[in-house]
Design a protein around this nucleic acid. Sequence first.
DNA 1: TCCGTTATGGACCGAGTGGTCCAGAATGTT
DNA 2: AACATTCTGGACCACTCGGTCCATAACGGA
Lengths: 192, 192
Amino acid sequence: MARAKEFDREVVLERAMEFFWAQGYEAASMRDLLDAMQIGRQSLYDTFGDKHSLFLASLGHYYEMGVGSVVAQLSAPDGGLSAIEDYFDGMARRMTTKPYRSCLLINSAIELAPHDPEVAKIVNRFVKNLRKGFAKALEVAESKGEAHVDDIDAVSWHLTNSAMGLGPMSKARVPYKDLKLVSEQILKNIRA
Amino acid sequence: MARAKEFDREVVLERAMEFFWAQGYEAASMRDLLDAMQIGRQSLYDTFGDKHSLFLASLGHYYEMGVGSVVAQLSAPDGGLSAIEDYFDGMARRMTTKPYRSCLLINSAIELAPHDPEVAKIVNRFVKNLRKGFAKALEVAESKGEAHVDDIDAVSWHLTNSAMGLGPMSKARVPYKDLKLVSEQILKNIRA
DNA sequence: TCCGTTATGGACCGAGTGGTCCAGAATGTT
DNA sequence: AACATTCTGGACCACTCGGTCCATAACGGA
Protein backbone atom coordinates (compact mmCIF):
# COMPACT_ATOMS: atom_id res chain seq x y z
CA MET A 1 0.00 0.00 0.00
CA ALA A 2 0.93 3.62 -0.40
CA ARG A 3 -0.22 7.13 0.17
CA ALA A 4 -3.79 7.54 1.38
CA LYS A 5 -6.27 9.90 -0.27
CA GLU A 6 -6.17 13.35 1.23
CA PHE A 7 -9.91 13.84 1.03
CA ASP A 8 -13.10 12.14 2.09
CA ARG A 9 -15.11 10.90 -0.85
CA GLU A 10 -18.42 11.70 0.83
CA VAL A 11 -17.35 15.23 1.67
CA VAL A 12 -16.23 16.20 -1.81
CA LEU A 13 -19.23 14.47 -3.39
CA GLU A 14 -21.45 16.56 -1.16
CA ARG A 15 -19.70 19.67 -2.45
CA ALA A 16 -20.13 18.56 -6.03
CA MET A 17 -23.82 17.96 -5.41
CA GLU A 18 -24.24 21.40 -3.89
CA PHE A 19 -22.54 22.96 -6.88
CA PHE A 20 -24.58 21.09 -9.48
CA TRP A 21 -27.67 21.94 -7.49
CA ALA A 22 -26.89 25.63 -7.51
CA GLN A 23 -25.61 25.86 -11.09
CA GLY A 24 -27.19 23.11 -13.16
CA TYR A 25 -25.29 20.55 -15.19
CA GLU A 26 -24.17 22.46 -18.26
CA ALA A 27 -23.45 25.68 -16.39
CA ALA A 28 -21.12 23.89 -13.99
CA SER A 29 -17.69 23.74 -15.60
CA MET A 30 -15.14 21.20 -14.45
CA ARG A 31 -12.80 24.00 -13.42
CA ASP A 32 -15.35 25.64 -11.15
CA LEU A 33 -16.37 22.23 -9.92
CA LEU A 34 -12.76 21.53 -8.94
CA ASP A 35 -12.61 24.81 -7.07
CA ALA A 36 -15.84 24.06 -5.26
CA MET A 37 -14.78 20.53 -4.37
CA GLN A 38 -11.31 21.67 -3.27
CA ILE A 39 -9.67 18.73 -4.93
CA GLY A 40 -7.03 18.12 -7.56
CA ARG A 41 -7.92 17.56 -11.17
CA GLN A 42 -6.52 14.08 -11.49
CA SER A 43 -7.93 13.06 -8.14
CA LEU A 44 -11.39 13.85 -9.40
CA TYR A 45 -11.04 11.88 -12.61
CA ASP A 46 -9.45 8.97 -10.74
CA THR A 47 -12.17 8.89 -8.12
CA PHE A 48 -15.35 9.70 -10.00
CA GLY A 49 -14.62 9.26 -13.69
CA ASP A 50 -15.91 11.88 -16.09
CA LYS A 51 -18.32 14.75 -15.55
CA HIS A 52 -21.39 12.74 -16.35
CA SER A 53 -20.48 10.00 -13.89
CA LEU A 54 -19.79 12.61 -11.25
CA PHE A 55 -23.23 14.05 -11.85
CA LEU A 56 -24.92 10.69 -11.52
CA ALA A 57 -23.03 10.13 -8.27
CA SER A 58 -24.17 13.55 -7.06
CA LEU A 59 -27.75 12.75 -7.98
CA GLY A 60 -27.50 9.50 -6.07
CA HIS A 61 -26.07 11.32 -3.10
CA TYR A 62 -28.89 13.86 -3.30
CA TYR A 63 -31.46 11.13 -3.24
CA GLU A 64 -29.90 9.26 -0.33
CA MET A 65 -29.10 12.28 1.78
CA GLY A 66 -32.12 14.45 1.05
CA VAL A 67 -35.16 13.27 -0.80
CA GLY A 68 -35.03 9.69 0.34
CA SER A 69 -35.79 10.44 3.95
CA VAL A 70 -38.41 13.03 3.08
CA VAL A 71 -40.25 10.57 0.89
CA ALA A 72 -39.87 7.92 3.56
CA GLN A 73 -41.61 10.17 6.07
CA LEU A 74 -44.64 10.23 3.80
CA SER A 75 -44.96 6.51 4.30
CA ALA A 76 -44.67 6.71 8.09
CA PRO A 77 -47.40 4.67 9.79
CA ASP A 78 -48.36 7.61 12.00
CA GLY A 79 -48.14 10.15 9.16
CA GLY A 80 -51.34 10.67 7.25
CA LEU A 81 -52.47 14.19 6.48
CA SER A 82 -49.87 15.86 8.65
CA ALA A 83 -47.09 14.11 6.72
CA ILE A 84 -48.47 15.49 3.48
CA GLU A 85 -48.84 18.92 5.03
CA ASP A 86 -45.27 18.83 6.33
CA TYR A 87 -44.03 17.77 2.93
CA PHE A 88 -45.60 20.63 1.03
CA ASP A 89 -44.97 23.33 3.57
CA GLY A 90 -41.39 22.15 3.97
CA MET A 91 -40.81 22.25 0.23
CA ALA A 92 -42.43 25.65 -0.15
CA ARG A 93 -40.40 27.07 2.70
CA ARG A 94 -37.09 25.56 1.60
CA MET A 95 -37.49 26.80 -1.95
CA THR A 96 -38.19 30.37 -0.96
CA THR A 97 -35.50 30.89 1.66
CA LYS A 98 -31.74 31.23 1.80
CA PRO A 99 -30.20 29.70 -1.31
CA TYR A 100 -33.48 29.64 -3.28
CA ARG A 101 -32.81 26.30 -4.87
CA SER A 102 -35.61 24.08 -5.99
CA CYS A 103 -35.31 20.31 -6.09
CA LEU A 104 -32.26 18.98 -7.92
CA LEU A 105 -34.29 16.10 -9.33
CA ILE A 106 -36.90 18.43 -10.81
CA ASN A 107 -34.16 20.58 -12.29
CA SER A 108 -32.54 17.51 -13.77
CA ALA A 109 -35.83 16.34 -15.21
CA ILE A 110 -36.11 19.54 -17.20
CA GLU A 111 -32.50 20.07 -18.15
CA LEU A 112 -31.23 16.54 -18.75
CA ALA A 113 -33.95 13.90 -18.87
CA PRO A 114 -34.91 14.58 -22.50
CA HIS A 115 -31.38 13.88 -23.75
CA ASP A 116 -30.05 11.65 -21.03
CA PRO A 117 -31.60 8.19 -20.60
CA GLU A 118 -29.79 7.46 -17.33
CA VAL A 119 -30.99 10.65 -15.70
CA ALA A 120 -34.45 10.07 -17.14
CA LYS A 121 -34.53 6.67 -15.45
CA ILE A 122 -33.54 8.10 -12.07
CA VAL A 123 -36.06 10.92 -12.32
CA ASN A 124 -38.80 8.53 -13.35
CA ARG A 125 -38.04 6.31 -10.39
CA PHE A 126 -38.13 9.31 -8.08
CA VAL A 127 -41.54 10.37 -9.35
CA LYS A 128 -42.92 6.88 -8.90
CA ASN A 129 -41.58 6.66 -5.37
CA LEU A 130 -43.00 10.04 -4.52
CA ARG A 131 -46.40 8.97 -5.77
CA LYS A 132 -46.20 5.77 -3.77
CA GLY A 133 -45.34 7.85 -0.70
CA PHE A 134 -48.39 10.04 -1.21
CA ALA A 135 -50.58 6.99 -1.77
CA LYS A 136 -49.37 5.48 1.48
CA ALA A 137 -49.96 8.73 3.37
CA LEU A 138 -53.47 8.89 1.92
CA GLU A 139 -54.20 5.35 3.07
CA VAL A 140 -53.06 6.24 6.56
CA ALA A 141 -55.10 9.43 6.51
CA GLU A 142 -58.15 7.48 5.46
CA SER A 143 -57.69 4.86 8.16
CA LYS A 144 -57.36 7.65 10.72
CA GLY A 145 -60.54 9.21 9.40
CA GLU A 146 -58.75 12.42 8.45
CA ALA A 147 -59.84 12.26 4.87
CA HIS A 148 -62.09 10.45 2.49
CA VAL A 149 -60.38 9.65 -0.78
CA ASP A 150 -62.45 7.93 -3.42
CA ASP A 151 -59.65 7.39 -5.91
CA ILE A 152 -56.25 7.09 -4.29
CA ASP A 153 -54.55 6.62 -7.65
CA ALA A 154 -55.87 9.88 -9.07
CA VAL A 155 -55.30 11.89 -5.90
CA SER A 156 -51.76 10.62 -5.38
CA TRP A 157 -50.88 11.53 -8.96
CA HIS A 158 -52.44 14.92 -8.41
CA LEU A 159 -50.33 15.45 -5.30
CA THR A 160 -47.22 14.38 -7.18
CA ASN A 161 -47.99 16.84 -9.92
CA SER A 162 -48.48 19.60 -7.36
CA ALA A 163 -45.14 18.76 -5.78
CA MET A 164 -43.40 19.04 -9.14
CA GLY A 165 -45.08 22.37 -9.75
CA LEU A 166 -43.33 23.97 -6.81
CA GLY A 167 -40.02 23.78 -8.66
CA PRO A 168 -40.90 26.05 -11.58
CA MET A 169 -42.99 28.22 -9.27
CA SER A 170 -40.08 29.01 -7.02
CA LYS A 171 -37.79 29.60 -9.99
CA ALA A 172 -40.37 32.06 -11.26
CA ARG A 173 -39.90 33.96 -8.01
CA VAL A 174 -43.37 33.30 -6.67
CA PRO A 175 -43.08 34.30 -2.99
CA TYR A 176 -43.66 32.00 -0.03
CA LYS A 177 -46.91 33.75 0.80
CA ASP A 178 -48.49 32.45 -2.40
CA LEU A 179 -46.85 29.04 -2.24
CA LYS A 180 -48.35 28.76 1.21
CA LEU A 181 -51.79 29.33 -0.31
CA VAL A 182 -51.09 26.52 -2.73
CA SER A 183 -50.03 24.20 0.04
CA GLU A 184 -53.12 24.99 2.10
CA GLN A 185 -55.41 24.53 -0.86
CA ILE A 186 -53.93 21.14 -1.59
CA LEU A 187 -54.70 20.04 1.96
CA LYS A 188 -58.17 21.52 1.86
CA ASN A 189 -58.94 19.44 -1.22
CA ILE A 190 -58.26 16.14 0.47
CA ARG A 191 -59.50 16.88 3.96
CA ALA A 192 -62.66 15.06 4.87
CA MET B 1 -32.05 51.10 -51.25
CA ALA B 2 -30.42 47.83 -52.09
CA ARG B 3 -30.80 44.12 -51.91
CA ALA B 4 -33.76 42.88 -49.88
CA LYS B 5 -33.41 40.25 -47.18
CA GLU B 6 -33.77 36.75 -48.53
CA PHE B 7 -35.67 35.51 -45.51
CA ASP B 8 -38.75 36.38 -43.51
CA ARG B 9 -37.90 37.45 -39.98
CA GLU B 10 -40.96 35.75 -38.53
CA VAL B 11 -40.24 32.49 -40.28
CA VAL B 12 -36.64 32.15 -39.13
CA LEU B 13 -37.55 33.32 -35.62
CA GLU B 14 -40.15 30.58 -35.50
CA ARG B 15 -37.44 28.07 -36.42
CA ALA B 16 -35.13 29.42 -33.74
CA MET B 17 -37.91 29.13 -31.19
CA GLU B 18 -38.60 25.54 -32.20
CA PHE B 19 -34.93 24.72 -31.84
CA PHE B 20 -34.51 26.35 -28.44
CA TRP B 21 -37.70 24.63 -27.37
CA ALA B 22 -36.41 21.22 -28.37
CA GLN B 23 -32.82 21.66 -27.18
CA GLY B 24 -32.73 24.16 -24.36
CA TYR B 25 -30.61 27.29 -24.32
CA GLU B 26 -27.13 26.01 -23.51
CA ALA B 27 -27.46 22.87 -25.57
CA ALA B 28 -28.37 24.87 -28.67
CA SER B 29 -25.13 25.91 -30.35
CA MET B 30 -25.07 28.82 -32.77
CA ARG B 31 -23.91 26.52 -35.57
CA ASP B 32 -26.82 24.12 -35.13
CA LEU B 33 -29.12 27.08 -34.70
CA LEU B 34 -27.94 28.47 -38.04
CA ASP B 35 -28.60 25.14 -39.68
CA ALA B 36 -32.07 24.97 -38.19
CA MET B 37 -32.88 28.54 -39.16
CA GLN B 38 -31.48 28.08 -42.68
CA ILE B 39 -29.85 31.45 -42.61
CA GLY B 40 -26.36 32.91 -42.99
CA ARG B 41 -24.20 33.60 -40.00
CA GLN B 42 -23.89 37.31 -40.49
CA SER B 43 -27.55 37.66 -41.34
CA LEU B 44 -28.41 36.25 -37.94
CA TYR B 45 -26.13 38.58 -36.02
CA ASP B 46 -27.27 41.58 -38.08
CA THR B 47 -30.94 40.79 -37.56
CA PHE B 48 -31.14 39.47 -34.01
CA GLY B 49 -27.92 40.43 -32.26
CA ASP B 50 -26.23 37.83 -30.08
CA LYS B 51 -27.46 34.47 -28.85
CA HIS B 52 -29.09 35.83 -25.74
CA SER B 53 -31.06 38.44 -27.65
CA LEU B 54 -32.15 35.81 -30.13
CA PHE B 55 -33.39 33.70 -27.24
CA LEU B 56 -35.36 36.55 -25.75
CA ALA B 57 -36.91 37.18 -29.16
CA SER B 58 -37.78 33.49 -29.41
CA LEU B 59 -39.34 33.56 -25.98
CA GLY B 60 -41.39 36.59 -26.98
CA HIS B 61 -42.47 34.83 -30.14
CA TYR B 62 -43.43 31.77 -28.12
CA TYR B 63 -45.58 33.85 -25.85
CA GLU B 64 -47.33 35.71 -28.66
CA MET B 65 -47.85 32.75 -30.94
CA GLY B 66 -48.56 30.04 -28.42
CA VAL B 67 -49.21 30.70 -24.80
CA GLY B 68 -50.79 34.08 -25.23
CA SER B 69 -53.87 32.81 -27.02
CA VAL B 70 -54.19 29.82 -24.71
CA VAL B 71 -54.14 32.06 -21.67
CA ALA B 72 -56.54 34.41 -23.37
CA GLN B 73 -59.03 31.58 -23.83
CA LEU B 74 -59.07 31.10 -20.08
CA SER B 75 -60.46 34.62 -19.77
CA ALA B 76 -63.14 34.08 -22.37
CA PRO B 77 -66.53 35.30 -21.12
CA ASP B 78 -68.16 31.97 -22.07
CA GLY B 79 -65.29 29.88 -20.71
CA GLY B 80 -65.63 28.87 -17.12
CA LEU B 81 -64.93 25.30 -16.12
CA SER B 82 -64.69 24.01 -19.66
CA ALA B 83 -61.92 26.51 -20.42
CA ILE B 84 -59.94 25.20 -17.46
CA GLU B 85 -60.62 21.65 -18.51
CA ASP B 86 -59.50 22.36 -22.06
CA TYR B 87 -56.36 24.02 -20.79
CA PHE B 88 -55.21 21.09 -18.69
CA ASP B 89 -56.23 18.36 -21.04
CA GLY B 90 -54.65 20.23 -23.93
CA MET B 91 -51.39 20.64 -22.04
CA ALA B 92 -51.34 17.03 -20.92
CA ARG B 93 -52.04 15.80 -24.42
CA ARG B 94 -49.53 18.10 -26.12
CA MET B 95 -46.75 17.18 -23.73
CA THR B 96 -47.17 13.45 -24.20
CA THR B 97 -47.49 13.28 -27.96
CA LYS B 98 -45.32 13.80 -31.04
CA PRO B 99 -42.31 15.90 -30.11
CA TYR B 100 -42.72 15.42 -26.34
CA ARG B 101 -41.83 18.98 -25.48
CA SER B 102 -43.10 20.66 -22.38
CA CYS B 103 -43.66 24.41 -22.12
CA LEU B 104 -40.72 26.55 -23.22
CA LEU B 105 -41.44 29.02 -20.46
CA ILE B 106 -41.34 26.35 -17.76
CA ASN B 107 -38.10 25.02 -19.21
CA SER B 108 -36.65 28.51 -19.21
CA ALA B 109 -37.73 29.07 -15.63
CA ILE B 110 -35.67 26.10 -14.53
CA GLU B 111 -32.67 26.47 -16.80
CA LEU B 112 -32.22 30.24 -17.01
CA ALA B 113 -34.30 32.23 -14.54
CA PRO B 114 -31.91 31.72 -11.61
CA HIS B 115 -29.00 33.30 -13.48
CA ASP B 116 -30.82 35.49 -15.98
CA PRO B 117 -32.84 38.44 -14.68
CA GLU B 118 -34.44 39.22 -18.04
CA VAL B 119 -35.73 35.69 -18.46
CA ALA B 120 -36.80 35.65 -14.83
CA LYS B 121 -38.89 38.74 -15.45
CA ILE B 122 -40.61 37.24 -18.48
CA VAL B 123 -41.30 33.98 -16.68
CA ASN B 124 -42.66 35.80 -13.66
CA ARG B 125 -44.98 37.82 -15.86
CA PHE B 126 -46.17 34.64 -17.55
CA VAL B 127 -46.99 33.02 -14.24
CA LYS B 128 -48.91 36.05 -13.08
CA ASN B 129 -50.90 36.21 -16.31
CA LEU B 130 -51.67 32.53 -16.12
CA ARG B 131 -52.96 32.95 -12.59
CA LYS B 132 -55.11 35.88 -13.66
CA GLY B 133 -56.50 33.73 -16.46
CA PHE B 134 -57.45 31.01 -14.02
CA ALA B 135 -58.99 33.55 -11.66
CA LYS B 136 -61.12 34.93 -14.47
CA ALA B 137 -62.21 31.46 -15.54
CA LEU B 138 -63.16 30.69 -11.94
CA GLU B 139 -65.25 33.85 -11.72
CA VAL B 140 -67.07 32.88 -14.88
CA ALA B 141 -67.56 29.34 -13.62
CA GLU B 142 -69.01 30.67 -10.40
CA SER B 143 -71.37 33.04 -12.19
CA LYS B 144 -72.56 30.14 -14.32
CA GLY B 145 -73.11 28.05 -11.22
CA GLU B 146 -70.60 25.43 -12.33
CA ALA B 147 -68.51 25.76 -9.23
CA HIS B 148 -68.42 27.27 -5.81
CA VAL B 149 -65.03 28.74 -5.00
CA ASP B 150 -64.62 30.25 -1.58
CA ASP B 151 -61.12 31.61 -2.11
CA ILE B 152 -60.40 32.49 -5.72
CA ASP B 153 -56.89 33.64 -4.88
CA ALA B 154 -55.87 30.37 -3.31
CA VAL B 155 -57.54 28.21 -5.94
CA SER B 156 -56.11 30.15 -8.86
CA TRP B 157 -52.62 29.84 -7.40
CA HIS B 158 -53.24 26.16 -6.90
CA LEU B 159 -54.27 25.76 -10.53
CA THR B 160 -51.20 27.68 -11.64
CA ASN B 161 -49.01 25.41 -9.59
CA SER B 162 -50.67 22.37 -11.10
CA ALA B 163 -50.08 23.72 -14.58
CA MET B 164 -46.39 24.18 -13.85
CA GLY B 165 -46.19 20.65 -12.53
CA LEU B 166 -47.09 19.17 -15.88
CA GLY B 167 -43.70 20.27 -17.27
CA PRO B 168 -41.50 18.18 -14.99
CA MET B 169 -44.06 15.37 -15.04
CA SER B 170 -43.90 15.00 -18.80
CA LYS B 171 -40.10 15.21 -18.78
CA ALA B 172 -40.13 12.41 -16.24
CA ARG B 173 -41.96 10.34 -18.85
CA VAL B 174 -45.21 10.11 -16.92
CA PRO B 175 -47.64 8.80 -19.54
CA TYR B 176 -50.78 10.59 -20.71
CA LYS B 177 -52.98 8.10 -18.92
CA ASP B 178 -51.72 9.36 -15.55
CA LEU B 179 -51.61 13.02 -16.55
CA LYS B 180 -55.23 12.59 -17.54
CA LEU B 181 -55.99 11.44 -13.99
CA VAL B 182 -54.30 14.60 -12.72
CA SER B 183 -56.32 16.78 -15.04
CA GLU B 184 -59.59 15.13 -14.03
CA GLN B 185 -58.76 15.36 -10.35
CA ILE B 186 -58.05 19.07 -10.68
CA LEU B 187 -61.47 19.61 -12.19
CA LYS B 188 -63.16 17.42 -9.61
CA ASN B 189 -61.70 19.59 -6.87
CA ILE B 190 -63.32 22.78 -8.12
CA ARG B 191 -66.58 21.40 -9.43
CA ALA B 192 -69.55 22.39 -7.34
C1' DT C 1 16.62 3.31 4.89
C1' DC C 2 15.12 2.40 0.66
C1' DC C 3 11.71 0.91 -2.58
C1' DG C 4 7.25 0.62 -4.80
C1' DT C 5 2.97 2.61 -5.09
C1' DT C 6 -0.19 6.13 -5.20
C1' DA C 7 -1.94 10.93 -4.97
C1' DT C 8 -1.19 15.39 -6.77
C1' DG C 9 -1.45 19.55 -9.70
C1' DG C 10 0.20 22.07 -13.51
C1' DA C 11 1.07 21.70 -18.50
C1' DC C 12 -1.07 20.45 -22.27
C1' DC C 13 -4.53 18.74 -25.97
C1' DG C 14 -8.08 18.76 -29.62
C1' DA C 15 -12.54 20.17 -30.17
C1' DG C 16 -16.18 23.24 -29.95
C1' DT C 17 -17.91 27.76 -28.29
C1' DG C 18 -19.92 32.56 -29.43
C1' DG C 19 -18.68 36.25 -32.18
C1' DT C 20 -16.16 39.23 -35.90
C1' DC C 21 -14.27 40.31 -40.39
C1' DC C 22 -14.13 40.78 -45.13
C1' DA C 23 -14.30 39.80 -50.06
C1' DG C 24 -17.72 39.19 -53.25
C1' DA C 25 -22.42 38.62 -55.01
C1' DA C 26 -26.93 40.55 -55.60
C1' DT C 27 -30.05 44.17 -55.90
C1' DG C 28 -32.63 49.01 -56.38
C1' DT C 29 -31.74 53.65 -57.97
C1' DT C 30 -30.18 56.98 -61.17
C1' DA D 1 -24.81 50.97 -67.68
C1' DA D 2 -22.78 52.28 -63.46
C1' DC D 3 -23.06 53.10 -58.72
C1' DA D 4 -24.17 52.69 -53.86
C1' DT D 5 -25.94 49.82 -50.68
C1' DT D 6 -26.94 45.69 -48.47
C1' DC D 7 -26.97 40.78 -47.86
C1' DT D 8 -24.22 36.60 -47.79
C1' DG D 9 -21.15 32.83 -46.29
C1' DG D 10 -16.75 31.18 -45.33
C1' DA D 11 -12.37 32.26 -43.01
C1' DC D 12 -10.93 33.41 -38.85
C1' DC D 13 -10.45 34.82 -33.77
C1' DA D 14 -9.78 34.30 -28.81
C1' DC D 15 -11.57 31.62 -25.45
C1' DT D 16 -13.41 27.81 -22.79
C1' DC D 17 -14.71 23.23 -22.65
C1' DG D 18 -13.87 18.29 -20.84
C1' DG D 19 -10.19 15.28 -20.53
C1' DT D 20 -5.19 13.34 -20.55
C1' DC D 21 -0.26 13.22 -19.50
C1' DC D 22 3.60 13.34 -16.71
C1' DA D 23 7.11 14.82 -13.46
C1' DT D 24 7.08 15.21 -8.67
C1' DA D 25 5.81 14.73 -3.89
C1' DA D 26 4.09 11.96 -0.22
C1' DC D 27 3.41 7.93 1.99
C1' DG D 28 3.34 2.62 3.69
C1' DG D 29 5.81 -1.67 3.95
C1' DA D 30 10.05 -4.35 4.32
